[in-house]
Write a protein that binds this DNA or RNA. Sequence first.
RNA 1: GCCCGGAUGGCGGAAUGGCAGACGCUGCGGACUUAAAAUCCGCUGACCGUAAGGUCGUGGGGGUUCGAGUCCCCCUCCGGGCACCA
Length: 855
Amino acid sequence: MATNEADYNFKDIEATWQRYWKENETFRARDFDAKPKFYVLDMFPYPSGAGLHIGHPEGYTATDIVARHRRAKGFNVLHPMGWDAFGLPTEQYAIKTGTHPTETNKRNIANFRGQIERLGFAYDWSREIDTTDPDYYRWTQWIFLQLFRKGLAYVDERPVWWCPELRTVLANEEVVDGRSERGNHPVERRNLRQWVLKITAYADRLLADLKDLDWPESTKRQQEAWIGRSEGAEVEFALEGVEESLRVFTTRPDTLFGATYMVIAPEHPLVEKLTLPENRAEVKTYVMQAAAKSDLDRTDLAKDKSGVFSGSYAVNPVNNARIPVWIADYVLMSYGTGAIMAVPAHDQRDHEFAQKFGLEIKRVVAPPKEADPKDEECFAGEGVNVNSDFLDGLPTAEAKQRITNWLQEQGRGRATVQYKLRDWLFSRQRFWGEPFPIVWVSEEDYAAIGDDRKPADPVTTSRDGQVLRAVSVPEKSLPLCLPEVASFQPSGTGESPLANLPEWLEIWFNWQTGEAVPAREPKPDGEAWVRGRRETNTMPQWAGSCWYHLRYLDPRNWERVVDPKLAEYWGVPDLYIGGAEHAVLHLLYARFWHKFLFDLGVVPQNEPYFKLFHQGIILGEDGNKMSKSLGNVVNPDSVIADYGADALRLYEMFLGPLEAMKPWNTKGIEGVFRFLKKVWREIVGRDGKLSPKIHDGGETNPETARLLAATIRKVDEDIDALRLNTAISQMMIFINHLQKTESTARETIRQFVQLLAPFAPHVAEELWVRLGGKPSVADAPWPKADDSRLTADEVKIVFQVNGKLRGDAMVPAGAAEEEVLALARSHPRVAPHLEGKTVRKVIFVPGKILNLVAG
RNA sequence: GCCCGGAUGGCGGAAUGGCAGACGCUGCGGACUUAAAAUCCGCUGACCGUAAGGUCGUGGGGGUUCGAGUCCCCCUCCGGGCACCA
């Protein structure tokens, strides 16, 4: 017991019970316990220097309530917490102050952990993980090496997003409207050599398996749209005067007869060959302009079409029509084949282009009669083919089939599927990330190195004219730790600060043991030593969070990512709660890695998160997003100081539906604080002893018994459905009722305290003890609702006349229609409305309503 | 432009097609107090009415139904996502 105090002293109570939970390891999850397991996971935070935000406890409280509820219901609950600690702010701080990120990180984590502990969450801290801990990133590197060996990690020079402010490249997913997702800095296209993960190899599965996931529909749709599967056909167009043919992708092969020109992207490899001498100057200018255009300009909302004629012609395979080949930046090199057949009569973009440049528009699909006549000009819908020779009269779907078969027979095309999803750009030019466990060696040395260090197809680059090939360091030698650096500034050459460390970078490398010595020293003896250069890129912040849900199962395992028996026992999270902002970043990447690990046999499930829920955003009191500049930021520490953690937890849940965006209201927290004080007063008398209202023996007040049963049932169901706001309302109704009663059975109030415990655990522990319970209340089995109390002898029937409420009456539960009808007719408020009318129809819903239709 | 989600008192919100506004906040009135705080009690959608009671009312318009906040169609506004992806 914390105190013998008469008043609700949340400070003492919360400190006491937090200490109790820690000392007794109350929330330790037991491996292989015979109870059914329940794994509930929060998206782990980035431990920023700013400390915990008021939004963090929202999701964390929700999972905590679920975890404590499940525990009370007899589950072996795993509820862990950790740190997604690689990231830019820590590194920026290091650049500014010279403080090593490890130092900053340690401090920030201690601060975050303290804040989280003061909220009283039932985490199993023995499983705490930190993505920047070499013991953790060792396994991030290990998974990368498996990807590398399977050919799913490769190096490619390609136009990538470069952020000059951050001095690093960013993935597609990290760029929003031409700006970096983190920090909102402008980004530009640069051709750079980068590590890329072949997430596209999993595109079909990432899409198809969405159907098995219990996720918010909007998030599933976002992923679906991001993966962007479209079925269509590839068609080969012969080119005049050029040997190569031009391959295009189209989703509308049925409109092939309407193709009146072709467009290739300015970056298309055939631009040069297709440009006739007299067009050269113009094309060159255009291509250069397109290259200089920022992507924001290129995808500008105005979308003013531009392009130039190459001078060359292609041949439409279906009718041998000669059609001009244009170069235009509305065709993207990065999608499909970088070339299209333009059908201006049936594609909006082609139509705009054709109009602007006076190109032929040939209609080949007749719209259905009900189509909007203003679509006459350009009809992109489905209809019936016309002007299409052997396709005439066929509806779109059949025409597609027919022409695709024809192309296949002619060897001029085939059915294909395209995805919008691009491979995942995986390298960053930063210090504070996982180093790639990769060494670059010469072609000759590569040949001598064992196959278990290489992918089937070599990953190759060139440096200063020399061809280099990538080999993995031996798994046994992991982790490859971040070296000490003098400066955290990126190198001036677009490489990470690691490139500034010749001792670390240029090495003699023993490919069998992973040992390395600086290259300036003499080559050590032994056959396995080769000259090597380390990879200087580091992994993006997403890497560590791709698999952290697995490490919690077995956080200190030195031999494996996770013990298969533990992976089997705990499985994947039964509930995952976190923000919706990760819909296509973390949640897509983690699915990819998890599926890959499934394929390797490391885990027995093919998806990491079957049930996902997004908590909403808590806005400032003024209804705006909380921000320092608006001065509307609410600090959790000061709320805890003023009202306590229990009140904060309760209030965040009481604000509204968990998934909703809702404003903070300082007055509102006083309401839940008042509720806690009322609960306290019902149990603790003014003298600090048990309230004299509490009696032993059974509950004597039938209404109390009924309301208790209803409350148990509602709180139970609401927690399962994450309707935590209405669960709290119900508890308020219950306590308001108790306040009006003369006396309450000890057992009644004990059960109520159990219901409160997941929401306000500290005060519940304290009251539980004061009621004679043995700590912890978390160990007490969840109360069962006495359903017999819920079936009343009498029910209220509402009387309506013509659908309007006119009165009500209590009737015996099983009352027959005739009885109720008689009551209604004679009801003083109903009768006047029936005067002079005949009842034409009676609708009777037993136990609910009697509606008289009269006229 | 396309795809989602939403709109309910002064505010946050509640409501298996069946009493709209639970619960909380705010406001008003009252009790306790020398006083204040705290606590407790009552009222608190709009309009008409002394009252009993009545009329209206869930963004707007239409529909289905004995009955619609809830289901269907159209529109407005707000939020989110995608956006030249062929």
